[in-house]
Write a protein that binds this DNA or RNA. Structure first.
Lengths: 237, 237
DNA sequence: CGAACCCTTGACAGAAATCAACTAAGGTGG
DNA sequence: CCACCTTAGTTGATTTCTGTCAAGGGTTCG
């Protein structure tokens, strides 16, 4: 594990407030590793062995039932995932696969549980991180239940624009089929929705998105801090 | 606040492991109160002032956007809600209203945050509770994205049967329109779905549900521990 | 160059929401 | 005690939305 990785991890909200001794102990058992694109890192139902931290690349969290599957989230640097399963020492609810070549930090779940029993600051950080994850999923569920697919797409584009610093032109950075699955629709349906969204000020060509009329977009999907707001660092989609 | 309430709260997973002194301190600032049916306890967007514990009755957590709204969960004794907002000291993502006359314990969020900074056991309990809430919402989102409405209804009935100790005959205990909203469908659609579910071994008359063919039901919605499993005590729907 | 794979488009089928009407049950007030 | 009102639930007709199936264009990569 590279020294500058260590420094970066140390600066994560999850790790920055803990005692140095405990951080060092935690990193003792941890290791960074690079994985190729398209690798299944974990499968839902597996026992939770490691907390994962995305240092480079992108990881898709997805879930399956019967023969269906869907994208639940995309995690980019520097974000963590499957914290909850590690803490409760129960099977993962989601699978994870790399979307591109990625470097991850793996922290043994047992060490994690041991350390936050003796480091109050780390416990507080863990709580805060977990609360953020929880709220992110609640937002996602609200979006699914309160908006139709066209509104979800528009809201997604609006949020991406905000993440890009309010830019009126930006690239998606994720395959459309993933976005579709994340938004709870088929690729075909997303494709059709995007075509009709020029009515409300969004034009998409390939990976390039242009917001041609922000006022109309804002009128169509009034952004709601209780749905679209930030909450989980590194959680892109 | 009644003495036996205190004992019951003390036995909650969230509070049972903390030091007695800290528990007493927490309860010092807390108070139990009864509320009539249909009262809006908290509104989404409000600042998080109190952790709520349902001692008696039932509370609906719901969310709204524009002119729409939906049920996100129903909490019954003894369950807690809006823990995450209290911890992060941020606005509630959901509103809460009593479904019937209910008694709640209200614990000031500031006390909560103070105590889990100095009581490691309480911090651990908080993490576990929160992780449970997180996983419950992930399950809910998975159900919404991976199953169609008929499957969600069937799975819901199956789970209620299991919660009733595996009984093949039980009462819903919640208005159907709430169940519909929770499952992400209209009341009309739920009504129609219920009628067609006799094909897979479910018959419903009023509030009474009878599972006439468990084998066929299990074949129709293979219960999945990663979707239907337990996780959040007190979280009924 | 060929083979995947992603994206798009069209035609169609199925699912779900909407609108409207009607029933039944519970509560209120005369 | 009963007429009245409100509300949950149901049912039917209809529209809208969404998924499915099939085909073709474009790109990437071996």
């Amino acid at each position: 594990m590279r020294p500058d990785d260590l420094a970066e991890v140390r600066h994560l909200p999850l790790f920055r407030d803990m005692l140095k001794a405990n951080f060092d102990a935690l990193m003792q058992g941890a290791y960074a590793q690079a994985f190729p694109e398209g690798l299944e890192l974990i499968r839902q139902g597996d026992p939770a062995d490691f907390l994962h931290v995305v240092l480079e690349g992108a990881v898709e969290l997805h879930a399956g039932w019967q023969d269906r599957s869907c994208t639940m989230a995309v995690v980019k640097p520097v974000g963590t995932f499957i914290l909850a399963a590690c803490i409760k020492d129960v099977p993962y609810l989601m699978s994870a696969r790399t979307l591109e070549r990625s470097r991850l930090l793996l922290v043994p779940a047992s060490d994690l549980r041991a350390v936050f029993r003796r480091d109050a600051e780390f416990a507080v950080s863990t709580i805060t991180e977990l609360a953020g994850c929880y709220r992110a999923v609640v937002r996602h569920a609200k979006s699914l239940k309160l908006r139709n697919s066209r509104e979800r797409v528009a809201a997604y584009m609006l949020k991406q624009s905000q993440l890009a610093g309010g830019a009126l032109r930006f690239t998606l950075g994720i395959e459309k089929r993933l976005i579709a699955s994340y938004l709870g629709m088929t690729p075909e349906n997303l494709s059709r929705a995007l075509k009709t969204l020029d009515d409300v000020g969004i034009e998409v060509h390939g990976q390039m998105v242009t917001i041609t009329d922000m006022d109309r977009l804002l009128a169509f999907v009034p952004p709601d801090a209780l749905i679209d707001g930030p909450d989980a660092p590194g959680l892109v989609a």
